[in-house]
């Protein structure tokens, strides 16, 4: 069973996150970067399966600038067997379509039974890469799973949607994405950190993958403007002197909110 887990380096949400107002790109120097927590949960799912089943091969795959090596290595330290890093200058500012194309090419090159991703990253929050990959790889998608069962040739799980809860299943190969309801990723231990240094770590460029960043037949999403929003001005703040509930009711009524 070959499982590929998508991981992503993101600005830590515990700190301030900045966009460069000239390029519209994430200002990576402005904030600490971490392995996105949802990707760690996706990896944990794969590692748990590998713990219980012989012959499972777990690879972490990421698309990120050059500096992301250390963050990706955390995935190896947690227990992944291999890492694949898609890295190319031409991917700077890549939109969802180009990102999906490059990732799909890397996945195809590795070969896979199951691709596991987080449902939404904390920085982009597009949440579309899983379905895009499924379309590009010509396999089923089962997204937003709050529980997952990996069986023999089939993956199944619980999928909460707007109006209720679905039980879904897909024949392998397939792409799944998981939600925060899944268990947290394990902490890398010392042995894992040491072992990570010896594990295969492949770096691929777009040329290696046969993907053209500037394919004129593909429509791309472009940023027109980017502006920092003025910080929200704080309004009235009152200290409760026994009548704050009434004053709050007045405020809501005056603003037609109650």
């Amino acid at each position: 069973m070959k499982i590929i887990v998508l991981v992503k380096e993101v600005p830590d949400t515990y700190g301030d996150r900045k966009l460069n107002l000239e390029t519209g790109l994430a200002d990576r120097a402005a904030s600490d970067v971490v392995l996105d927590e949802i990707g760690e949960r996706a990896l944990e799912l794969a590692l748990k399966y590998a713990d219980a089943n012989d012959g499972a091969d777990v690879a972490v795959l990421t698309l990120a600038p050059e500096g992301a090596t250390a963050t990706i290595r955390k995935g190896l330290a947690m227990g992944a067997d291999r890492a694949v890093h898609v890295c190319d200058e031409a991917l700077l500012g890549a939109d969802l379509g180009l990102t999906a194309e490059a990732l799909a090419a890397a996945i195809r090159r590795q070969g896979f039974d199951l691709v596991v991703t987080g449902n939404v990253s904390t920085d982009g929050s597009g949440g579309m890469i899983p379905a895009m990959l499924a379309e590009l790889l010509d396999v089923p998608h089962a997204t937003g799973l709050s529980s997952v069962e990996i069986g023999d040739g089939v993956v199944s799980g619980t999928r909460p949607v707007e109006s209720g809860v679905q039980q879904v299943s897909a024949d392998l190969p397939a792409v799944i994405s998981v939600t925060e309801a899944l268990p947290e990723g394990r902490f890398p231990n010392f042995k894992g950190i040491m072992a990570a240094k010896k594990k295969p770590f492949e770096v691929l460029t777009l040329a290696d993958l046969g993907v053209a960043a500037d394919n004129p037949e593909m429509a791309r999403s472009i940023m027109l403007t980017v502006a920092e929003k003025p910080p929200r001005a704080s309004g009235v703040k009152i200290l409760d002197e026994g009548d704050a509930g009434d004053k709050l009711a007045d405020f809501l009524v005056a603003n037609r909110l109650a």
Binding site: L19, G24, A219, S221, L224, T225, V226, A227, K229
Partner: peptide, 10 residues
């Protein structure tokens, strides 16, 4: 909500 961004297709 810290930034406003406008986007469109090529």
């Amino acid at each position: 909500g810290a930034y406003n961004v406008a986007s469109t297709a090529t």
